[in-house]
Write a protein that binds this DNA or RNA. Structure first.
Lengths: 138, 138
DNA sequence: ATACGATCTCTAGTGACTAGAGGTTCAAGA
DNA sequence: TCTTGAACCTCTAGTCACTAGAGATCGTAT
């Protein structure tokens, strides 16, 4: 049995974040000492590691709640879990695509100005003011 | 002179968002009719177009405030504007890099399970539970 | 016994909006 | 001129996933 601080150290999840996960129902409320402090066991550690890992992979709290719900039913089909993972993958790919377009546009805008003139003639500012100067949609 | 709804239509920025920009100081408070409704002119339209374009490129409200401040001083060096744009570009590149790592990991995880088994043996869930199954850092 | 770091709860703040309530104004048609 | 109804107004609260801080209590090492 260990404290919330110890759990925090072992998982690299901040203490207030752990309490937040508990409050939002992602993490079971653990036992308490007589003095009302939380005490965790191996199961709690495992659960939080799962959450942390999923968060690092960009899953939303809602998606993680769905995934942990599935974990509790070992006999259920895992199609739902793969669906959630696929949706997350699609989301990540969409974000990459969009960011890639932004990167190209920002590169172009940044290259257009050496930073040595005055703002009146600044290509960065001109580009932001006028979308027509852009080469692709974003 | 046109209404906030008309401005919204012309810029594709929602009405409450326009009011929010005004409240946060990004957009000057426009004239009002006797009945207290906002009326915009060409300058307001131009300003909001600038903001919209910068937001679409991922600049924060704070960065946009700095950029519009620069616009107001045509004689100032534009080095600051190029700095802001470069920082934004660096930020976008960092995000792409991170998302790319996530994409690879999610691909691997998704491929590992065809969704036809039961959750007990689901590779998606196993992968989330155990970071050691990951091939790269993320 | 005491010191002091860790923990507790609670409230409020972040960024960039979005939603809704409840009331007022504008513009077009009769 | 009157009426309708869409558009507008302000204000509060909610979103997501935390983060920060206040003020009080607890646990443990000396």
């Amino acid at each position: 049995m260990f404290s919330i601080g110890e759990l925090s150290r072992r998982t690299n999840v901040k203490v207030p974040t752990i309490r937040y996960y508990e409050e939002s129902g992602l993490l079971d409320a653990p036992e308490r000492t007589e003095g009302n402090q939380r005490r965790y066991d191996a199961a709690g550690l495992e659960r939080l590691s799962f959450i942390k890992h999923a968060r690092d992979l960009g899953f939303s709290i809602e998606a993680i709640a769905a995934l942990t719900e599935l974990q509790g039913h070992p006999d259920r089909s895992c199609a739902e879990a793969t669906d959630i993972a696929s949706a997350q993958l699609a989301d990540v790919r969409a974000k990459i695509k969009r960011l890639y377009a932004l990167e190209k546009e920002l590169e172009r805008i940044s290259k257009g100005c050496d930073g040595e003139g005055v703002t009146e003639n600044c290509y960065v500012l001109a580009s932001l003011a006028d979308h027509d100067l852009c080469e692709r949609e974003h």
